[in-house]
Design a protein around this nucleic acid. Structure first.
Length: 593
DNA sequence: TTAGGGTTAG
C-alpha cells in the first residue's frame, strides 16, 4: 500500500523556504514560525533553514545549529557543505562529528571538507590528513564525489601527479572527474608550478580529452572551457577552431565561461576580429570578458582600441578590477601614452579604491622606461611601497638597453644578478654591455665572477623543428654543422651578421651572429641562429617552431618580433614557461617585458 | 521526499 505523503514537505513554510530569495529579516520570521509550528524539530525543514541562514549570517546559523539537541550526520553534512568558504568552522564541525560516539562521517561529509582545504593556502597538510580519514571511515572507491573532490584538492595544492594517480585509479570516471583532471592540467600549465613542463601539460590535456571522447563520455561546457584554454596556451590554432566548432555543432551553451575562453584564445592567436565578434555577441559583459579583450588588443599593438574599450567598459558601468589595470597600462605602454597610463595608474586608488600591486608598478616602470623616462622609472622603482622583483628590474634593464643608459642598466643588472644569481643571461648581458663600450677590464671581471659562481655550466640550446626533424643549436657554437650553410645563405640574401637591428629601407635583418673584433662579447643566441636556419631552410608558410631550454631573453624577443614582421612569418618560441607566438611584429606573451 | 564533486583573464 502506498504511504500517504508527509504533510511536512507540503507545509507552507517549507515551500516558502525552498522557493524564494530571503533577507535576514524574512529568514528570522521563518525561523520563528518554524519554532511555533514545531517544524524546527524535523530534519528536512531544519536543513533548509540552516542552508539559508548560513548564506545570510554565519553567527546566526551557528546559534541555530547549536540549539539542535542531537544533530544527525545529515544535519552536520548539510551545515558543513553550506559553509565551505569558512574552512576553520567546517573543520571544527567535523571534529565534533569525530568526537561524538554516535556519529560517523560518511560519503557526504568529505567532498565539502576537501573543497574547504583546497580553497585555503597552506592547508595542504590538513587535507592530506583528511585523506587518511577517508580510508578509515568510508570506502573511497565506491564514491565518485569523494574521488573527484580529492582530485581537485591535490590539483589545486600543486600535486598534479597525485591527482592523476587518483584519476587513473577510477574505473569509470564520470563527466565531473574528466573535467577535474582536464582543469588540473590546464591550470597547471597556466600557473607554472611544474617548471619547464607547462606546454607538456597542455598537450597532455588534449590527449586526455581525446581519451574522454573515445570512452564515450560526452563533454559539456566545462570540458570545452578547459580544452580551449589548453589550445590558447599551446598556440594550437587548428585544435582551438575545432573546439569552437564542437561547441556549436554539439549544441553546447555559449555561456560566459565558454565565450570568454574563446575570446581569450582568438586574441592570443592574433585573430582580433574573431575575438571582437564573439565579444560583441555576449549579451552581458562582465569585467572578465572586458579584461581578455582589452588584453588581446594591447598584446597585438592596438593600444588605442584597448583604451577605447576601457572607456566603454566604464560607460557601461562595469567595474574594472586589478587585472583590467594591468592590461590598460600595458596598452598605453605599447602606444607610448605615458601621461594617460600614469593617470590611469593614479586613478586606481583615487577613483576605484584599488591598491596598486607589484604588477601595476611593474607596468608603470615599463611605461616610463620604454618612453625613455629612465630617471623617473628608476625613481618609481626606488619609491614603490614593496620590494621590486626581477620582472620590474628586467623592465628597467630593457628600457636602458633600448635607450642606451649604461648607468641605470648596470644598476638593474646588479639587482638582477642578486635576485636570480643562477641566471647566466644577466652576467652575459652585463658583460656585453661593458664590451660595447670597450670596458674590457669589467668584461673580464664579470666573466671571472661567472666562473667563480659556476654559472653558465649548461649552455642555452634551441631546437628548431623543420619537417618534423629537430635541429639543435647551442649558444656560441660556431662549429655547428649548419653554421656554414646559414652564413652562406644569409650572405646570399644580403643579411648583415652584426648586432641585431633593422634597416626598414633595405629590409636588412641584422643578427649578432658573431663579431670577432669585440673581445669578450658573447656570440649569437642560439634561438636567433635557429630562426635564421629555419628562414633559409624552408619556404613553407607554417610557423617556425623553436624549442628552448632557457627563457626567451629580451634581445631574442625583440629581434624575433622584428623578423616576424619583416618576413611575414609566424614564429613560435617555446621556452620553459610558455609559448610566445610572434605575428606581424607583435607577440602574444606580454608578461615578459 | 533530505546532504557532497567539475568552468573564464593575470
Amino acid at each position: 500500500m502506498k504511504k500517504p505523503p508527509n504533510p511536512i514537505f507540503s507545509h507552507q513554510t517549507v515551500l516558502l523556504l525552498q522557493n524564494q530569495q530571503h533577507s535576514i529579516k524574512t529568514m528570522k520570521q521563518i525561523h520563528a514560525n518554524m519554532i511555533t509550528t514545531g517544524l524546527i524539530l524535523h530534519a528536512y525543514p531544519l536543513s533548509k533553514i540552516l542552508i539559508l541562514s548560513s548564506s545570510l549570517s554565519i553567527p546566526y546559523s551557528l546559534t541555530l545549529f547549536n540549539q539542535i539537541q542531537t544533530p544527525s550526520i545529515f544535519l552536520f553534512n548539510t551545515f558543513i557543505s553550506s559553509i565551505t568558504n569558512n574552512a576553520h568552522l567546517a573543520f571544527s564541525l567535523y571534529s565534533r562529528v569525530l568526537a561524538e560516539k554516535s556519529l560517523k562521517p560518511n560519503n557526504f561529509t568529505y567532498p565539502s571538507l576537501f573543497k574547504a582545504c583546497g580553497s585555503r593556502p597552506n592547508w595542504f597538510r590538513h587535507g592530506r590528513a583528511l585523506h587518511g580519514h577517508v580510508f578509515k571511515f568510508i570506502e573511497p572507491h565506491c564514491d565518485c564525489y569523494v574521488q573527484v573532490s580529492l582530485i581537485n584538492f591535490y590539483s589545486v595544492s600543486g600535486k598534479l601527479g597525485i591527482a592523476r594517480y587518483l584519476f587513473d585509479e577510477m574505473s569509470k570516471p564520470d563527466l565531473a572527474a574528466w573535467n577535474s583532471i582536464l582543469a588540473a592540467y590546464c591550470n597547471g600549465s597556466c600557473s607554472g608550478y611544474c617548471g619547464g613542463e607547462n606546454a607538456d601539460l597542455s598537450i597532455e590535456a588534449l590527449c586526455l580529452f581525446n581519451q574522454m571522447l573515445v570512452s564515450h563520455v560526452r563533454p559539456n561546457e566545462k570540458t570545452l572551457v578547459a580544452i580551449i584554454g589548453a589550445c590558447a596556451d599551446l598556440g594550437a590554432l587548428c585544435n582551438g577552431v575545432w573546439s569552437h566548432a564542437y561547441v556549436l555543432r554539439s549544441n553546447l551553451k555559449m555561456n560566459h565561461f565558454v565565450a570568454t575562453a574563446l575570446i581569450d584564445m582568438y586574441a592570443k592567436f592574433g585573430y582580433l576580429d574573431l575575438a571582437d565578434q564573439l565579444f560583441d555577441q555576449m549579451s552581458h559583459k562582465d569585467a572578465l570578458c572586458y579584461n581578455v579583450m582589452i588584453r588581446g588588443l594591447a598584446l597585438h599593438g592596438h593600444g588605442h582600441r584597448a583604451i577605447g574599450l576601457f572607456q566603454r567598459m566604464r560607460e557601461e558601468g562595469v567595474e574594472p578590477d586589478n587585472v583590467t589595470f594591468v592590461a590598460v597600462i600595458c596598452a598605453c605602454t605599447h602606444v607610448g601614452l605615458v601621461n594617460e597610463g600614469s593617470e590611469i595608474f593614479n586613478s586606481m586608488k583615487e577613483v576605484y579604491g584599488i591598491e596598486p600591486k607589484l604588477e601595476h608598478y611593474g607596468c608603470l616602470v615599463d611605461l616610463l622606461g620604454r618612453a625613455g623616462q629612465l630617471d623617473e622609472a628608476l625613481e618609481l622603482v626606488r619609491s614603490m611601497p614593496m620590494e621590486p622583483n626581477a620582472v620590474v628590474w628586467r623592465s628597467l634593464l630593457g628600457a636602458c638597453r633600448v635607450h642606451g643608459n649604461l648607468e641605470i642598466g648596470e644598476l638593474a643588472l646588479r639587482h638582477l644578478v642578486e635576485l636570480e644569481p643562477e641566471t647566466s643571461g644577466y652576467y652575459v648581458l652585463l658583460s656585453n654591455m661593458y664590451a660595447n663600450i670597450s670596458r674590457w677590464d669589467d668584461v673580464r671581471r664579470v666573466r671571472k665572477v661567472m666562473k667563480n659562481k659556476g654559472v653558465n655550466k649548461f649552455p642555452g640550446t634551441s631546437f628548431v623543428e623543420i619537417d618534423g626533424a629537430l635541429h639543435e643549436f647551442v649558444i656560441g657554437d660556431k662549429t655547428h654543422p649548419c653554421s656554414d650553410m646559414i652564413y652562406r645563405k644569409l650572405e646570399e640574401m644580403n643579411w648583415k651578421l652584426q648586432m641585431h637591428g633593422h634597416n626598414p629601407s633595405t629590409k636588412e635583418v641584422l643578427f649578432d651572429i658573431e663579431d670577432e673584433e669585440k673581445e669578450g662579447a658573447l656570440s649569437y643566441h642560439s634561438e636567433r641562429l635557429a630562426i635564421a636556419f629555419a628562414l633559409v631552410a624552408t619556404d613553407s608558410s607554417f610557423p617556425i617552431r623553436i624549442i628552448k631550454n632557457l627563457r626567451v631573453c629580451q634581445d631574442c624577443h625583440a629581434s624575433t618580433k622584428l623578423i616576424s614582421k619583416i618576413y611575414g612569418r609566424d614564429i613560435v618560441l617555446r621556452d620553459g614557461n610558455r609559448f610566445h607566438h610572434f605575428r606581424n611584429g607583435a607577440c602574444s606573451c606580454l608578461d615578459y617585458w
